[in-house]
Computed example of a mutant assay.
Amino acid sequence: MERVAIVTGASRGIGRAIATTLAAAGQAVVVGYGGSEKSAHEVVEKITADGGRAIAVQADVADEQAVAALFDAATEAFGGVDVVVNAAGKMVLSPIADLDLDALDDMHRTNIRGTFVVAREAARRVRDGGAIVTFSTSVVGLRFPSYGGYVASKGAVEALTLILAREMRGRQITVNAVAPGPTATDLFLNGKDEATIEHLAKQPPLERLGQPEDIARVVAFLAGPEGHWVNGQVIRANGGIV
């Protein structure tokens, strides 16, 4: 039976790579997006041109009605949901002393509430034997200055992910978090000068930034039968940076 995946934040960056990678593995994909309608439809066009099946659906991940409608669209188009990957996220960098609280609230609405809303709907509607993947960050352990507000949100994601894995007992549903290190996406590169980027690229023993496809392959493993024995884990996909 064809597996069906919902990927939020799938119009660009890591989410886009995940959507196309899961489609290449034979899964029908719902390309969830926030505001980048044109980019989301480009992802769908790429997947269908390569012989896959996909639709694009707009949803604010922090809006429970929109997320329910996202799952409804997946069920209507493809018959159900087996895999949910919540790659939608926001990142605002600032020293804790200077971080605007409105910006903090907006970031946490997407990263914490959004993850919780998507996870809650997934827990209710993913078919037995499926997989749920959330997104954290390796900076939870690396503790880079200026990432305090962002890491606070991702620490919450890790905690709720590990609890949800235990709450899925008896349904053969895996729940894991992927925590990328520095990855060459617009979200990461924005606002950084070349010297900073080069410094970060030299930190892992592999001496490069991650690419979206590196992270997508980890997600595809967790979302497929090969990764089904991995459950209740935070996978730090970062090239060995410490």
Score class of each variant (00 low, 15 high):
Asp72Ile: 00
Ala73Asp: 03
Ala123His: 14
Pro182Lys: 03
Ile6Ser: 06
Lys38Gln: 09
Val4Trp: 02
Ala119Ser: 15
Asp105Glu: 12
Ala59Gly: 08
Lys46Glu: 15
Arg217His: 13
Gly232Asp: 05
Leu104Asn: 05
His228Asn: 14
Ser138Asn: 07
Met1Phe: 02
Val126Cys: 00
Thr161Ser: 12
Ala122Phe: 05
Ala223Tyr: 05
Arg171Asn: 05
Ala56His: 03
Gln211Thr: 12
Phe188Asn: 04
Ser36Cys: 05
Val4Ile: 15
Arg124Lys: 13
Gly9Trp: 10
Ala40Leu: 12
Glu64Asp: 14
Glu2His: 14
Gly191Cys: 07
Ile96Glu: 03
Glu64His: 13
Thr75Asn: 08
Phe221Ile: 07
Met91Phe: 08
Pro204Arg: 14
Pro182Thr: 07
Asn190Ile: 06
Pro145Gln: 13
Ser36Gly: 06
Thr185Lys: 01
Glu213Gly: 09
Thr115Asn: 07
Asn176Ile: 10
Phe78Val: 01
Asp60Met: 04
Val139Tyr: 02
Asn176Lys: 07
Thr134Asp: 01
Lys202Glu: 15
Val157Cys: 11
Met107Ile: 12
Trp229Glu: 03
Thr75Met: 00
Gly227Cys: 11
Ser153Gly: 15
Gln233Val: 09
Phe144Met: 09
Leu104Asp: 07
Thr174His: 10
Val218Pro: 04
Gln27Tyr: 09
Val218Gly: 02
Val118Gln: 02
Asp50Gly: 13
Gly34Tyr: 11
Asp193Gly: 13
Arg113Glu: 10
Val57Met: 04
Glu226Lys: 15
Ile173Phe: 10
Arg124Phe: 06
Ala17Trp: 01
Met1Ser: 09
Glu226Met: 15
Thr174Ile: 05
Trp229Asp: 04
Ala49Val: 12
Glu207Ala: 11
Val29Gly: 02
His41Phe: 14
Ala179Val: 11
Phe135Ala: 00
Thr183Trp: 12
Thr75Lys: 07
Val61Arg: 02
Gly191Lys: 08
Gly148Ser: 11
Thr185Cys: 09
Val242Asp: 05
Phe188His: 08
Lys192His: 15
Val118Thr: 11
Arg113Asp: 13
Glu158Tyr: 04
Pro205Met: 10
Leu104Met: 07
Ala74Val: 03
Thr48Met: 03
Gly79Tyr: 00
Pro145Met: 03
Ile55Met: 00
Ala24Pro: 01
Phe144Glu: 12
Val92Cys: 02
Tyr33Phe: 14
Met168Pro: 09
Gly80Ile: 06
Leu200Phe: 13
Leu189Trp: 12
Glu121Ser: 14
Ala216Asn: 03
Phe188Thr: 07
Ala10Trp: 00
Gly210Glu: 01
Val175Thr: 08
Arg208Pro: 07
Trp229Thr: 09
Asn176Cys: 14
Gly89Tyr: 04
Ile14Phe: 05
Leu142His: 09
Asp63Gly: 12
His41Pro: 01
Gly141Val: 03
Ala156Gln: 03
Val84Gln: 05
Leu209Ser: 08
Lys90Trp: 10
Leu189Gly: 12
His41Tyr: 14
Ile173Asn: 10
Ser138Thr: 10
Lys154Gly: 02
Ile163Thr: 15
Ala40Pro: 06
Val234Arg: 08
Val7His: 06
Leu142Ala: 08
Gly227Trp: 13
Val230Cys: 09
Ala17Ile: 06
Asp193Pro: 10
Glu213Ile: 15
Asp106Ala: 08
Gly232Glu: 13
Gly224Leu: 04
Pro212Thr: 08
